[in-house]
């Protein structure tokens, strides 16, 4: 009787509707995460895990220069990608929100998603074609006589990783900023001018603070996944463009050291989470971001 009434209650209905998704999320997200977390404290054995507790894996992560260097480079790359992506996304979002007629806004947003119609892998390969030794840019510049031998700094280093990732994540950065800009009551901008500020100062004092919620979302959406990106550095990174995800892959699939790979993963996750939290906190504290 009691069970029946629970299932009929509003909370019961809600939980029932939620349960398939919750189950799915548990199986494919929470369970692997827990497994990785547990593995990271176990003793390595080739292609298997020895079930004895140890902190050695973490000791290695923090003591050997390769991991810290790669983690540092990952955060650095991802930070640059985030800055480039968000700074280029803002003017685009601003243009669509303020200058495109309302009837055409959805068309513009649709156009922005066009790169997603091809696979991520193909887009990365295309950048290889564009940036390569005999690629589009080099051939064009050589043909125009601007350079006399192909530029080599374009591909297989951090530059190419940044360019490729910034392109891939552009729509993710544009959309949240666009939404934040759309929500700004236009009379606020008139009020800013009415109170004596120029268009530019009105932008600084009104538009930008009110768009910060979108900027913060964009930063997080770009920063968190790019810090752990694996495909792009593999394909266009070369030896000097490798990131932390590449070493995790190496530990797991080449060396068969699951506990070590797990420890690097957990460390990377913890660092990225900490940085994201610090960013959100700083933003709230000093830039009056979303409350």
């Amino acid at each position: 009787m009691k069970r029946r009434s629970f299932l009929r209650s509003e909370a019961g209905h809600g939980l029932l509707m939620l349960s398939p998704t919750a189950l799915y999320a548990t199986i494919v997200m929470a369970a692997p995460l827990v497994a990785v977390f547990v593995f990271s404290f176990m003793t390595p054995g080739y292609l298997k895990v020895v079930w004895t507790f140890t902190l050695n894996n973490y000791a290695k992560v923090f003591s050997s220069p390769i991991y810290t260097a790669l983690l540092g480079r990952s955060l650095m790359t991802s930070g640059v990608v985030t800055a480039v992506t968000v700074l280029t996304a803002f003017p685009i979002a601003y243009f669509i929100s303020f200058y495109v007629s309302p009837a055409r806004k959805s068309l513009w947003l649709f156009l922005i998603t066009i790169p997603f119609w091809t696979s991520y892998l193909i887009r990365v390969f295309l950048w290889k074609v564009i940036l390569g030794y005999n690629g589009v840019i080099n051939s064009a510049f050589l043909g125009l006589g601007i350079i006399h031998e192909p530029m080599t700094f374009l591909l297989y280093n951090m530059n190419s990783v940044v360019i490729t990732l910034a392109h891939s994540y552009a729509p993710f950065a544009i959309l949240p900023i666009f939404v934040a800009l759309e929500k700004i009551d236009r009379s606020l901008l008139e009020a800013g001018q009415d109170l004596g500020e120029s268009r530019f100062m009105t932008f600084i004092r009104v538009t930008l603070p009110l768009a910060m919620s979108g900027v913060v979302a964009s930063v997080l959406i770009v920063f968190i996944p790019t810090a752990g990106d694996y495909v792009t550095p593999t394909l266009v990174g070369g030896a000097n463009g490798q990131m932390i995800a590449n070493v995790i892959q190496l530990q797991y699939f080449k060396l068969g050291d699951y506990p070590m790979g797990s420890a690097v993963s957990i460390t990377a996750m913890a660092v990225v989470t900490a940085m994201a939290l610090v960013f959100v906190f700083l933003n709230r504290r000093f830039l009056r971001g979303p409350k």
Binding site: D185, S187, E190, Q193, D194, L195, G196, S198, R288
Partner: peptide, 20 residues
């Protein structure tokens, strides 16, 4: 003379209070 240089001030219909 642009709006920000005119000796006028406005009370908007929506009040346009800066929410931040």
């Amino acid at each position: 003379v642009p709006a920000n240089k005119r000796p006028t001030n406005m009370v908007f219909q929506s009040y346009a209070i800066f929410p931040h």
